[in-house]
Amino acid sequence: MDIRELKYFIEIVKKKNFTLAAKNLHISQPALSKTMKNLESELEVQLLDRSDKEIKLTEIGQLFFVQAEAVLNAFDSLKASLYDQSKLNKGEVIVGLPPVIGSSIFVKVLTTFKESFPDIKLHIIENGAKMVEHNLYNGKIDLGVVIAPVDENQFEYIPIMEDESVLVVHHHHPLAQREAVSIANLKEEEFLLLDKTFMLHHHVVQYCQDAGFKPNILFESSQWDFLVELVAQNQGVTILPRPILSRVENRQIHIIPIRPNCLKWKVGFLLNREQYVTHVMKVFIDHTVRTVATCE
């Protein structure tokens, strides 16, 4: 049994099909089938149930799959650490970044990082925070940037900055005359929120429920600027992080603080506790924290 066979086995399980797995692995389907039969013969167990069109794991196969993934992850971490020591400020890092965060604080981070570390390739994948967590857990990205709180039993969290989320209303809205509002004041409002892939969506819903009511969500979007435009047309109210609104110039909207400040906007890095943190990952984390601190 070798690493190649483990990779083949894991790909078959994920695709649930020999043909699709073989295509992804760039080998022939008969060769892949033969490799799996040889592996099962060597281990003297049946790992795969081939009785249906969709490949399934046997009971022993499920146990083997968990261990195989752990071994493969450990092998990849070992390779990364060896490469890391030999290359230092060379390599690449893949970062999952929600658009609502990227547009507000990461423009300067990305441009200055490229200038300071031209030999490090930076790949940005834009997704909502929920998808960032999913991609990090599955090894599709190296780092995630999310809004706290997070599950710190599963992930390591490194704070970047803290601000607050605020209420955005039409300038003729009755609440526009107030210096501040509470969550309870919004019980009768129609909400325009970022969709469920964003942590802020879940935070707003939770705080409304804590205040004794279920928010009336009229519309959801992945585009914060679209929500602002809807508010400007007096279609409802929204809650957004204050930093992203600093660049908005629209006289039809009014921004109001929420008190008590229950909707803090805490942004930080998310790391998989099972993953090796490479030198280039540390470089990007340190650069980001320093750059954001100088902008505050």
Rank of each mutant, 00 (worst) to 15 (best):
P99F: 08
A74I: 06
F113S: 02
I55T: 01
F65T: 02
V109H: 03
E54G: 05
N73R: 15
V109Y: 03
I158E: 06
F198W: 06
H26Q: 15
P257A: 10
E164C: 06
T288A: 10
N73M: 06
S28E: 06
K130G: 10
R4C: 05
A211S: 15
T112H: 06
N272S: 10
V145N: 03
P159E: 07
A74P: 08
L82S: 09
E133I: 07
E274A: 08
E162G: 11
A129I: 06
M161L: 14
M36I: 09
N138C: 05
V132K: 02
A184H: 10
Q209W: 08
T19M: 00
V283F: 11
T238Q: 03
G139V: 02
V45S: 00
H202F: 01
N24D: 02
E133Q: 15
I183C: 08
N216Y: 12
I141P: 00
W265I: 05
H134G: 05
G102C: 11
A293L: 13
N234W: 12
L143F: 05
V283D: 05
K196Q: 11
K34P: 00
V145H: 04
E152I: 09
D163Q: 13
Q46K: 15
E220L: 09
I10E: 10
E152H: 07
V145L: 06
W265Q: 06
K79L: 15
E59L: 10
I217A: 07
I120R: 12
L78V: 06
F226G: 05
C295P: 05
K264L: 13
L143M: 08
K87R: 11
F198D: 05
S51Q: 11
V71E: 09
I256Y: 10
S103Q: 11
D119N: 15
V13R: 02
A184W: 08
L88D: 04
N24P: 03
V107I: 15
S103D: 12
V168L: 06
E179V: 11
V283S: 08
C295T: 08
K266H: 14
A232E: 05
R50E: 12
A148D: 12
N135D: 08
V132Y: 03
P260W: 01
F226L: 15
G144E: 09
L48P: 07
E156A: 14
K214L: 12
K16T: 10
Y137D: 03
L20A: 13
F113A: 00
H134P: 00
H171Y: 14
F9W: 15
L271W: 07
L193Y: 12
D163S: 14
H201E: 03
T35D: 07
H123F: 14
N38W: 04
D49R: 04
V267M: 03
V280L: 10
N185P: 11
Y207L: 06
L136T: 01
C262G: 09
